[in-house]
């Protein structure tokens, strides 16, 4: 803040009006109003709305009604405000069942046909792109994938697919079905840093010897910590 002069000026963060000398008292009414609007607590907005720059200040807390999402306004070097998410409740449960899946094809990328809407938070089938789940923000996510197969012979494999690559065998789930174990299931349960817009899905494989095999695939993805 600069030294008061006879001119009116504004404080750099909240934009409070400052007058010099005898005009000081006159500044108070607009300042009180401004403090009331944006300084204390959170600024409520409708979902997806970014307040005008005249309302925001560096560090302002903005909360969306209904969605539970909360972000902090951070002023960049260009003077623009960026959203830094503090709370982003988001979860999706995607599913796919089938009875035909080629045997012996390694790392078969498998997307989803639908979501379980009552197990979704701030998400829907619109969050599937080309059957893959699209994550909404940069964040650390909790991921669970579960697949139950038909009870034929051979082995079953499950991996995580992300936008860039299939996961390595370090996180692969492999289960043997021989001799005719009727309930082979694969499990993956992990946390992973994902970037906004990345598509994620499952990578499946089996070598039962037939393409006619039943499978029931479920995947849940949830934001744990926004970045």
């Amino acid at each position: 803040m600069t030294e008061p002069t006879n001119d009116t000026y504004f404080t750099p963060k909240l934009g409070l009006t400052v007058h010099s000398m005898d005009d000081e008292l006159d500044a108070q009414v607009p300042n009180w109003e401004r403090l009331d609007t944006s300084f204390a607590g959170a600024i409520w907005v409708t979902p997806g709305t970014i307040p005008d720059n005249t309302i925001l200040y560096d560090g302002a807390l903005v909360a969306e009604r209904e969605t539970g999402k909360v972000w902090r306004a951070e002023k960049n070097v260009l003077g623009n405000f960026e959203q830094k998410w503090i709370k982003y409740p988001w979860m999706i449960m995607a599913v796919r069942t089938g009875s035909s899946f080629p045997t012996g094809v390694s790392d078969h990328e498998m997307g989803f046909s639908d979501v379980v809407q009552y197990m979704c938070v701030n998400s829907s089938a619109a969050d599937l792109l080309e059957t893959r789940i699209v994550v909404p923000i940069d964040a650390i996510y909790a991921i669970r994938i579960w697949c139950q197969w038909g009870g034929l012979g051979g082995y079953r494999s499950l991996k995580l697919y992300t936008e860039l690559a299939v996961d390595t065998s370090n996180t692969e789930s492999i289960v043997g079905s021989w001799p005719h174990f009727p309930y082979p299931q694969n499990y993956i349960n992990l946390t992973r840093k994902l970037q906004k817009g990345w598509r994620v899905c499952a990578g499946l494989w089996h070598n039962s010897g037939t393409d006619n095999i039943n499978y029931d695939l479920r995947m849940e993805v949830a934001v744990v910590t926004p970045l």
């Binding site: 108070q28 009414v29 009180w32 009331d36 609007t37 300084f39 204390a40």
Partner: peptide, 28 residues
């Protein structure tokens, strides 16, 4: 004021706001 209930005086009584409002801001 509508949210914080800051006291808004007018004209010659402007100075009377401070004792009330500083305490409200301090609390919140």
């Amino acid at each position: 004021s509508s949210r914080l209930k800051l006291r808004l005086e007018s004209d010659d009584e402007l100075v009377d706001q401070f004792a009330t409002n500083w305490h409200i801001l301090d609390k919140f």
